[in-house]
């Protein structure tokens, strides 16, 4: 069994009177693909936002790679090694695909104003490395031919891929994907599945929020189920599928 990469302890978050998350604890191990599922409004994205520093949790804490993750600022979280994508794709629309990925290298590079203006040797080398890495990543997600197109002009599936490439550019230990298959057709989903498996093979742990139960069950090593902001189950897919509470949550609720 691999080492624990992320441990969430009793995370709580409420908006006004609405309890979005109550005592959610989960453990993600190094190198696994971990699925987070649940009906609409179960708190999956809220958990993501707490994890990536967009929201401050009202209780609980997060341990990442053995150290406490101060849920303070998203850019620090990114620097610590957690990258994410967004449910409703957030690319830099008027930048090219290439530039989008280059922005992703920001946290791992250092050039300041002086370096940028003077073009000293270190900055030039760094800039070349950024470009090289971005090209590699575009190849990796299979959209190298769209490198010079504006992000907003890419097809939906390519935008999803570009967002993943941008997240990978931050050299994450944990890649958090928020419904990457939403709105994709069968072929695109199959391609995505291959991509995610490849990412795991390269040693990056993946946290996956997904609606597509088939994709989650086929892809994930372990799955947690949220319902009304609480974790009702956490286990390997085969067990989760048979759990009566999960069946109840999916079939008993109005949003099957």
């Amino acid at each position: 069994m691999n080492a624990v990469l992320l441990e969430a302890r009793a995370i709580a978050k409420h908006f006004g009177g609405v309890k979005a998350l109550t005592d959610v604890s989960l453990t993600i191990r190094q190198g696994e693909i971990y699925g987070l599922i649940g009906p609409n409004g179960a708190g999956k994205t809220t958990f993501f936002n707490v994890l990536t520093g967009l929201y401050h949790p009202d209780g609980g804490d997060l341990l990442f790679a053995g150290e406490k993750l101060e849920a303070s600022a998203p850019h620090k979280v990114a620097k610590r090694g957690i990258a994410r994508t967004f449910q409703n794709i957030r690319l830099f629309g008027n930048m090219t695909a290439m530039e989008n990925v280059m922005v992703g290298r920001h946290a791992r590079t250092h050039a300041g104003v002086l370096g940028a203006v003077m073009h000293d040797r270190r900055t030039t080398a760094e800039e070349a490395a950024i470009r090289r890495r971005a090209e590699e990543l575009l190849h990796y997600v299979n959209i190298a031919d769209r490198a010079d197109d504006l992000a907003r002009h890419l097809s939906y599936g390519d935008q999803r891929r570009l967002e993943i490439a941008r997240a990978l550019a931050t050299d994450p230990k944990l890649l958090a994907l928020d419904e990457p298959a939403a709105g994709m057709n069968g072929t695109e989903t199959a391609g995505l599945r291959e991509l995610i498996e490849g990412i795991r093979r390269d040693g990056i742990t993946v946290l996956l929020i997904e609606h597509d139960v088939k994709l989650v069950m086929g892809l994930c090593d372990r799955v947690a189920v949220l319902d009304y902001g609480q974790k009702i189950c956490e286990d390997v897919p085969a067990v989760v599928q048979k759990d009566p509470k999960v069946i109840e949550a999916y079939l008993g609720g109005s949003v099957a």
Partner: peptide, 30 residues
């Protein structure tokens, strides 16, 4: 100076903030 800045890590970060501040943060931009 402006051209050099525009085509640097910093210039890209500026434009990224203009385009989507939350995504920029998620990319590790302070």
């Amino acid at each position: 100076v402006t051209i050099r800045l525009e085509n640097s890590r910093i210039g890209r970060a500026w434009v990224a903030i203009r385009e989507d501040e939350i995504a920029a943060k998620a990319c590790g931009i302070n």
